[in-house]
Amino acid sequence: MVGHYFDFDLITHFRRAILMSGVLSGLNAWVLQRASAVYLLLFALIMPGYILYLDIDSFNVWHAFIASPIISISWILFFVSLFAHAWVGIRDVVIDYVHSFRIRLFILSMIAVYLIAMMIWVVRILFIPTGVIA
């Protein structure tokens, strides 16, 4: 296996850069998955409970709730954690079932673009009530 890395070509380069090392794989991915899991867990316990406790039943109250600084920031952090967590999880699934490296690279690239697009969508949604985006 190790010798394989020494034949340099573009695909091997991608393999090393994107899948086998780098920011979002290996031990870093493992840590990222656990750290994001803890935030997602806390958010899933606290946020729905808090919303139910406040008994939000009108659009204006809901809009003002989401627009408040701490709530909007905690929602943005939730989505950042969610997308990081989803990336690591889906990446593991794709690596397990898609063995052709080129197809794997293609699928993972599509998923990365998809998740980045989702993040931009979320930022637009959450920043409109706060007035950051008109």
Binding site: W62, L82, I90, M118
Partner: peptide, 30 residues
């Protein structure tokens, strides 16, 4: 765990869409 994770991954855009609709207008919230 893996199966539920994939279901949740697929549900992400539906959840974001619901959030968007609820924040767009009174009618959307209702």
């Amino acid at each position: 765990h893996r199966l539920s994770g994939v279901v949740l991954f697929l549900a992400i855009p539906l959840f974001i869409y619901a959030l968007q609709q609820s924040l767009q207008s009174e009618a959307g919230f209702q």
